[in-house]
Design a protein around this nucleic acid. Structure first.
Length: 426
RNA sequence: GGAGAGGUGGCUGAGUGGCUGAAAGCGCUCCCCUGCUAAGGGAGUAUGGGCUGAUACCCCAUCGAGGGUUCGAAUCCCUCCCUCUCCGCCA
């Protein structure tokens, strides 16, 4: 949620900024609603003040045994007026709130202009895509070749966009998870959390998935609960209604969870393999920091995610998302894109964002800048570190040999039970 | 799932429908006293909103949430949520 004070003070700048997202903000309409709100609130409050003082005097008069019927008649008249004003105020408030909750975050000035993914700005590359002197297989061919990946059975029991991993491939999947968790907790200072996979609507509203993107979510039939689309939701909501003290910053949490996405609107996209699934695992990093630290924190967070790709020896690039491609709640986002030989393209494997105070306002996550200073919203950030399924894809495809076997990166050894190569054990 | 009890400020915990935004204690901050330590004395210590140059006054709201009764609700009534205890079931 945007700071209402900024909206009031500088609606033009807000409108210009949001135009870069292709979002139209009707500043004049907003100003009008705001003026109405202000008038209604002032009136309602002064009526209330009158009622309060009169009621107080009635109490005093009664205690002294005096007659208060006149004052009571007066205050009864006030009550009717007050009810009117309050109803008006409530309806204006409701309209303003609905408006505010539907407005995306302001973009950082550094966000590149653009309409879609093709306009994202490449910041840097790491590693060189391997030159194969044979035609590389894609991860489905590799997995099915050794009987470790079964898309058909998954489709039979659940439908499209599900998968079954078996044997060493399932082991590799788990090893990747363990490796990422250990790396981030031991070397990057994140605290591991176990969190609910079902959350209520308020939590999703807090992080920005609702009310606008309901169709991307799986809702449980009896309502109340949604399957989480990312651990960002439960982790960020840990901060709801809390005031952090300075020593608690930066607040850094990590969780490994399944993620569930309806993938509405992506018909025909990435229909093959593990790239786009209804259910996948992800290791998620979430931070809350002092507002002055959030820009640096985004750089650091991105480096933490990059460390995983580097350890796994996977070539990747970092891109800064343009105004037309960046998410609703983010002020700035860096995507990590890993090289996929089968597609001869870089594909998203992590998304690291600075939300500034946007989520913090929605969930009332604040910190106290100092003794006797009023609390103010923290800045929140999050990033995938990484999406497990896509990492699995990248490992298979980048580390394959001509015979279809796959070299397991050394850093995974502690969890691979002696397996150093997929497709040779027999 | 059944039965009962309860949800008050950072914590513990009072609170007869008006003098309670809230006693008291603890914690925390500042000051005084004290050779050090310990003890003692004093002051301060919720959040959001409005107004404002102001994080000063003043005003409004908030005692789990939402409704209701009343001139007036932390206090009475209703609905919902959550916690605890016992029983049942269960990984």
């Amino acid at each position: 949620m945007l700071d209402p004070k900024v909206l009031r003070a500088d609606p033009r700048t807000v409108a210009d900024n949001l135009a870069r997202r292709d979002f139209t903000f009707d500043a004049a309409m907003y100003a009008e609603l705001e003026a109405e709100r202000k008038a209604a609130q002032s009136e309602a409050e002064s009526l209330q003040a009158q009622r309060n003082t009169l009621s107080k005097r009635i109490g005093e008069a009664r205690q002294q045994g005096e007659d208060a019927t006149e004052m009571m008649a007066e205050v009864t008249g006030l009550g009717a007026q007050l009810e009117h004003r309050q109803a008006a105020l409530a309806s204006i408030r409701q309209r303003l709130d609905a408006w505010l909750i539907g407005m995306p975050n302001l973009l950082d000035p550094e966000v590149p202009d653009g309409k879609g993914p093709q306009d994202n700005l490449e910041l840097r590359r790491w590693g060189d895509p391997a030159e194969f002197d044979f035609e590389p297989l894609d991860h489905v061919q590799l997995g099915e070749r050794w009987g470790l990946l079964d898309m058909r059975q998954a489709a039979a029991m659940s439908g499209a966009r599900f998968s079954v991993l078996q044997g060493e491939l399932a082991l590799l999947h788990r090893a990747l998870t363990q490796f990422m968790l250990d790396l981030h907790t031991r070397q990057h200072g994140y605290e591991e959390c176990y969190v609910p996979y079902l959350v209520n609507a308020a939590s999703l509203e807090g992080t920005g998935q609702l009310p606008k993107f309901r169709e991307d979510l799986f809702a449980l039939e009896g309502e109340q609960h949604f399957l989480i689309p990312t651990a960002e939701v439960p982790l960020t909501n840990l901060l709801r209604d809390t005031i952090l003290e300075m020593p608690e910053l930066p607040w850094k949490k990590i969780a490994h969870t399944p993620c569930f996405r309806a993938e509405a609107g992506s018909y025909g996209m990435d229909t093959r393999g593990l790239i786009r699934q209804h259910q996948f695992e992800k290791v998620e990093l979430v931070l809350a920091v002092h507002p002055e630290e959030s820009e640096a924190a985004l750089e650091e967070l991105t480096i933490h995610a990059e460390a995983v790709l580097q350890a796994l020896e996977l070539p990747y690039r970092v891109v800064s998302l343009c105004g037309g491609d960046i998410g609703f709640a983010a002020a700035r986002t860096y995507d990590l894109e890993v090289w996929l030989p089968s597609q001869k393209a870089y594909r998203e494997i992590s998304s690291c964002s600075n939300f500034r105070d946007f989520q913090a306002r929605r969930i009332k996550a604040r910190f106290r800048p100092g003794q006797d200073k009023p609390p103010q919203p923290v800045h929140t950030l999050n990033g995938s570190g990484l999406a497990i399924g896509r990492t699995l894809v990248a490992v298979l495809e980048n580390h394959q040999s001509e015979d279809g076997s796959v070299q397991i990166p050394d850093c995974l050894a502690p969890w691979m039970d002696g397996v150093t190569r997929l497709g040779v054990a027999g």
